[in-house]
Design a protein around this nucleic acid. Structure first.
Lengths: 141, 141
DNA sequence: AAGCCTATGTATAAGGT
DNA sequence: TACCTTATACATAGGCT
C-alpha cells in the first residue's frame, strides 16, 4: 500500500511517531532554510522531539542581530554601544550564574517584555491609522 | 505557463519575493504545527520578513515548561532566594534598555541555556543509574 | 496588493529490506 | 533500527484578475 491521507492528531504508535518525526522534522528545516534564502527572511527554529532531542536552525547570529540593531538606530545612536555592552554582559555574566528556575523566570520576563513591546508598537500603529482617519475625515463603518 | 523548478537563491524581484514569502511562510507554519501535533514535539518558530514583520509560533507555554521543570527539581532549593535577587536586577535594570530584537535574541539564548541545564541534569541522573548498577552488580545487556 | 487557478514539483505514508 | 521505494497528497510558481 502507498501513501494515504492522514488526520492531523497525535500518532499513537511510538515507532510510527518517531519515523514521521524524523521525516517531517527534516522537511521543516529544509523549508525554513529555503524561505530564509529565497525571501531574505530571518528565521529561528527550535524543535524538541518527544524524546527530548533538540534541533535548531537560525538564519541569524547574535552578532548579526546586534549589527542589524546598530544599523537601524538613528535615534539613540550614542546609547547603542552601551546597550550592546549591556546585552553582552547579560549574556556572558548573568546567564551562566543562573539556575534552571531562574532561567525560566527570565524567559518568562523576556516573553512579557517582548509582548509589551510588540503591543506598544501595535497600539502606535493603530493610533496612526485612527489619526489619519480623523484628519482625512473618513467614515468607514 | 505553469510551475517550474526554481533555484534556491534570493529572489531579486521584490513583488515576487513578497508573494513567495507569504505563500511559503504560511506553509512553514502549517508544517510546524502539524509536526508538533502529530509527533508530540515542542516547537518554537520565529520569522522576520524582509520588511521586518514578525511571525511567531510556539507549541509550548511558559507555564508548561515551568511545570515540567518543577517535576524534576529537588536540589538547589536553598540557593533560590539569593539568586532571585540577582535575577530581579537583571530584570529591572537590563531588560528595559533592550529593544525588540535584542529581547528576542536574549529569549533564544535563555532557551538554549535552559535546555543545556536540563540536559546536564539528565546526564547526572543517568550517571546515578549507572553508578547504582555498578554498586549492586547488575548486568543488564 | 491580495486572491484564484492549475500544472508541476516536492514531501511523505506505507511497505519493504 | 535505519535506509529504500513508490504512489499519492500537498505545496507552490507562474499567470491571470
Amino acid at each position: 500500500m502507498t501513501r494515504r491521507k492522514i488526520e492531523i492528531k497525535r500518532i499513537d504508535k511510538k515507532t510510527a511517531r518517531q519515523v514521521t518525526f524524523s521525516k517531517r522534522n527534516k522537511g521543516l528545516f529544509k523549508k525554513a532554510m529555503e524561505l530564509s534564502t529565497l525571501c531574505d527572511a530571518e528565521i529561528a527554529l527550535i524543535v524538541f522531539s518527544a524524546t527530548g532531542k533538540r534541533f535548531e536552525y537560525s538564519s541569524l547570529s547574535v552578532q548579526q542581530v546586534i549589527g542589524r540593531y546598530n544599523l537601524h538606530s538613528d535615534q539613540n545612536l550614542n546609547r547603542t554601544d552601551q546597550q550592546s555592552v549591556e546585552l553582552q554582559k547579560v549574556k556572558g555574566e548573568e546567564l551562566d550564574g543562573l539556575n534552571t528556575e531562574e532561567l525560566q523566570e527570565l524567559e518568562k520576563m523576556v516573553h512579557l517584555s517582548l509582548h509589551r513591546d510588540v503591543k506598544k508598537k501595535d497600539e502606535m500603529f493603530l493610533n496612526e491609522i485612527t489619526d489619519h482617519k480623523q484628519k482625512v475625515g473618513c467614515h468607514y463603518a
